Simulated assay, not measured.
Amino acid sequence: MEEKKRDRLLFWDILKGIGIVSIVFGHSQNLGVAIRTVYYYHLAIFFFISGYLYKEERYGDAPFDFFARRLKNMWVPYFCYGGLFVLLHNLLSKYLLFLSDSDYGKKEMILAMTNTLFLRCPEGPSGAMWFVPLMLAAGTGFSVILWFCRNYLPDSFRPWAAAALCIGAGLFGTALIRREIFLNYHLQTALLMIPVYYSGYAVRTFKISLERYVTWYGAALCSGLFYYFLMFTGESVELSANQIPGGLNFYIISAAGIYLCCYVAKCLQKVPKTGKAAALIGRYSFDIMALHFLVFKICDRIYARMILEPAENQGGFPHSYPELHILYLVLGIVLPVLFAIGARKAIHGLGGMLRSRSGKSQVL
């Protein structure tokens, strides 16, 4: 039983690894078709995973507890990374890694820290972290819908009502985006993603076996669907810019992308070393998301010095040199993972040392 549970958790870590690698790949490339491909699914996969991992027995009747728990888990790393970027603002601007109109004084520093406190970090390196409040809002919206169904609807009607309300929230979000009504913290996009969140929840709740239903011929069919959308519709997805395909196409292409990711994760799980590497990347997905833009610009800086390029040519965002695409991708994943592992070890070591000193002082 324990082995099956470990295998199941490994699968979802691998799936997160596929998602974050897709995000870094999309940000590190200038290839139009490649970027459009990964943008079809690279954010949706995280909502699907979160829906599957949602603990109904713990939070089904306590949506506020769910919000508080998710806020704590997301806010702490967000503020740590965002605060670090604020502190580094003047240094990064001095070396032209991230262009700025002016340096921060004390007043500007406090204002930027306050914005970061409310999940609105204004710094260039934190660009990918716009996703954090979106994930928090979508999960909370889903939790509230489930709470309402559990407490105010009969048992027999509950599953259908939850599905209908989640779909309704998604359609409402779609309508807002189509009418160009954009809310704070991308709340219109959070509504759009609630059905994707529900789909992960449904897989777990209704015990849908991914091992059985995720197959090579299903993956081939989804690949064909991707090809059709890429070559014949011209439709793209860019959630940060509120760009989605028309009608239900967003959900169709997201479902196909999630299915393909599940198939890849299923294959990687059968290759122990590769699977464990992908799972490790997945476990540090937040750190990669937070740091990969900074890694890109450090690569730009070093490369520019090597080829004696003028500093003014390093101002591209998120990167400046197309020839470094593979380097951006590899280092944009590896360096944040190494940094996160080292930081965690240092924090744990410091905590252990402080506890040891505290224990000695109490004895004395």
Rank of each mutant, 00 (worst) to 15 (best):
M1K: 11
K4A: 10
G19P: 04
I20C: 08
I23F: 07
I23E: 09
L31E: 14
V38R: 05
Y40F: 14
H42F: 10
I45D: 07
G51Q: 03
A62H: 14
F64W: 12
R69P: 03
M74T: 07
C80H: 05
Y81L: 13
G83M: 08
F85V: 07
V86C: 07
L87P: 02
L87H: 00
L99I: 08
L99R: 09
L99W: 03
D101P: 02
D103W: 01
Y104M: 07
G105I: 06
K107T: 12
M109N: 05
I110V: 13
A112M: 04
M113P: 00
M113N: 00
L119R: 02
L119N: 12
C121A: 09
L134V: 14
A138V: 10
F142N: 05
F142P: 02
W147S: 11
R158I: 01
R158Q: 15
P159H: 04
L165S: 11
I167V: 12
A175F: 10
Y185L: 11
H186Q: 09
L187P: 08
T189L: 15
L191E: 04
M193F: 14
Y198N: 05
T205L: 08
T205Q: 12
F206H: 05
F206C: 10
S209A: 07
L221H: 00
C222S: 06
F226Y: 15
F226T: 09
M231T: 09
M231D: 13
V237P: 13
V237T: 08
L239G: 00
N249L: 04
N249E: 06
K266Y: 08
K266I: 11
C267N: 04
K270Q: 15
K273G: 15
T274S: 14
A277I: 09
A278D: 11
I288V: 13
M289W: 04
M289N: 13
K297G: 04
P310L: 11
G316W: 02
P318F: 00
H319Q: 10
H319D: 06
L324A: 06
Y328L: 07
I333Y: 00
F339S: 05
A343V: 10
R344Y: 09
R344K: 14
R344V: 05
K345M: 15
K345I: 07
G349D: 01
G349P: 04
M353I: 05
R355T: 06
R357V: 12
